[in-house]
Design a protein around this nucleic acid. Structure first.
Lengths: 114, 114
DNA sequence: AAGCGTTATGCATAGGCGAATATAACGAAA
DNA sequence: TTTCGTTATATTCGCCTATGCATAACGCTT
């Protein structure tokens, strides 16, 4: 099988993880499900971990990324803010740009793998 | 402190890790030291781990990446092949290209972080 | 007031990874 | 043949992370 080039990107603030792909997947699942618990199930991680991811991101980022409400009809829920949406867009575009440039490098050096 | 964008790249073959930054650092240390044990010390990992990294890379890559000799004057040693050198060059160039494109994305979206 | 689904949080446990340790094999030089 | 520094490999131990379980708080609905 051919050699593949993989990559991973993430954002840091004060040398601490701020947001990675896991956060993005979770945020998109929140948009779809309307709750953090539902999103955790959707993505396939424990609620415990999902809550930690979101809590740290939300309390560290320059602006609120999600809004969490407890109680009420349906028990509460979680929604992604406009700022959160901007973050998702930025992350996905950066990842795409990186992927494109890496695939170009790979195809430029095809002879290395055979 | 400002938000930073970090990235990591690696090569896979048959869905298994082939070579990452740790391999590259180790290979360059081998070039400098002439031995795997010395390189491990230089990089700051255990010989055990260094050997596993190199062994898997060397036995999986399309061509030999290093040549290991045991016994003899000096006890033996390890050298990086020409192919190994090509891999190092490819990896470092790919990483640089990716870094450039990501920093461009970050500066294009400065307003997100304040 | 009772019920329900969600957010919020602590704690104990299991699994995986790397480190540390120990030992064998190797082959040139003295 | 003894010595020496290296490669080669198994085994044990400790740490970190994620998970699972348990429990509380919340507030709308009925």
């Amino acid at each position: 099988m051919a050699v593949q080039i993989k990559h991973k990107i993430w954002l840091e603030q004060d040398n601490a993880m701020l947001m990675g792909k896991g956060h993005v997947l979770l945020l998109k699942a929140i948009q779809k499900m309307g709750s953090l618990s539902g999103a955790a199930k959707e993505v396939g991680i424990s609620y415990r971990k999902a809550w930690k991811l979101i809590d740290h991101l939300n309390s560290t980022a320059p602006s609120a990324v999600v809004e969490l409400t407890t109680g009420g009809s349906g028990g509460g829920g979680t929604t992604v803010t406009g700022y959160g949406n901007e973050l998702i867009g930025f992350f996905e575009e950066a990842e795409k740009e990186s992927r494109l440039v890496l695939e170009k490098q790979l195809s430029k050096n095809e002879t290395l793998w055979k």
